[in-house]
Design a protein around this nucleic acid. Structure first.
Length: 311
DNA sequence: ACCCAGGCGCTTT
DNA sequence: AAAGCGCATGGG
């Protein structure tokens, strides 16, 4: 923690408890049982968190945040005093009882191994636009490269965000309106290559209200998915990422090359199931929180399998 | 010099 | 319907 925080009032509560008192704090603590913050922030669902010595620094909801896990407590520090920390509680999903989620997973050997290795891994609840735009940029890119593209995009076109002294200046994720006003050339200069026209067209459609991202969570999953699939550069995989990481559909199951790899190796060893077969399997085997299970398989195969050394 | 990387969209079988 | 291919860019 920096010295600037020391004079601030600190408290420990569920996020909204003290909002009525209009307490202004730059620091807040969240009870977070069964929460592995590091695994969660590095598991490829969000691309804007940077590791410090013993904390994580990022921008979400247009605010700079530093997070530090201290056992079953997550301590959050903001740049500006906050009266209400619900936005961060929602983002981190600290109110989710992980045990209840894990109890819905199938009781097979691969899931047991993934749970044992990744216990505490969580799903965040991200801003739909940032999530959508980030994953439009993700195709055939490694996570480190996605992070770099997103960082460049934010540095060039995001609004500056307040930070404590001695912190480098960060930027918010640029909203649809901002990107919609750019040219394809400007986007390509952020090194996103052939993804530039997709992002530009999608930003313009969202700006025009052709897809109301804020309303997706209120729809049936099939309808929400159909609306996302209508956007250029958004196929089944990216649509499911947005449904799972931003719209609160825990059954959405993004089938990417890593998860396909995991399913083949863990459930179909020696066979050669088609993608169609694996999709059917993913939709029938993992239950109401299939997306959570997917995240466990994804993180498990990438970080715990000796076959795949990964940065 | 190759080959691959958290896809998508379009064309060809 | 399934499979192939181009699309930028960067890293091993």
């Amino acid at each position: 923690m920096t010295g600037a925080v020391s004079s601030e009032l600190s408290r420990f509560s569920s996020a909204a408890t003290c909002a009525d008192l209009h307490l202004l704090t730059r620091q807040n603590s969240f009870r977070a049982c069964d929460y592995d913050l590091a695994a969660t922030l590095t598991s490829g669902q969000a691309f804007r968190w940077n590791a410090r010595r013993d904390s994580w620094v990022g921008v979400t909801h247009g605010r700079w945040v530093r997070l530090q896990q201290q056992g079953e407590i997550i301590v959050a520090e903001s740049a500006l005093a906050q009266t209400d920390w619900q936005w961060l509680a929602d983002y981190l999903q600290v109110a989710v009882n992980l045990e209840t989620v894990l109890a819905t997973f199938p009781c097979d050997e691969p899931m047991r191994a993934a749970i044992k290795a990744c216990r505490g891994l969580r799903l965040l609840r991200q801003d739909p636009w940032e999530c959508l735009a980030s994953f439009v940029l993700s195709s055939t890119k490694q996570i480190g490269q996605i992070r770099q593209i997103v960082a460049t995009l934010c540095e060039r076109y995001g609004a500056p965000v307040a930070v404590p002294t001695d912190e480098p200046p960060p930027f918010a994720f640029p909203p649809p309106d901002r990107l919609a006003g750019l040219t394809e050339t400007e986007l390509r200069a952020c090194k996103m290559g052939f993804r530039a026209p997709y992002l530009l067209a999608t930003a313009r459609l969202v700006k025009e209200g052709k897809c109301d991202l804020q309303q997706l969570s209120r729809l049936e999953i099939a309808e929400a998915r159909a609306q996302l699939l209508a956007l250029p550069g958004v196929g089944r995989k990216i649509a499911d990422c947005v449904l799972l990481f931003a719209c609160g559909f825990p059954a959405a199951f993004p089938l990417d090359v890593w998860v396909l790899r995991a399913l083949r190796e863990l459930y179909y060893k020696g066979n050669h199931p088609t993608v169609a077969r694996l999709r059917t399997f993913s939709e029938t085997h993992f239950g109401p929180n299939a997306g959570y299970a997917q995240q466990y398989l994804f993180h498990f195969i990438r970080t715990k399998s000796p076959k795949y050394i990964f940065s």
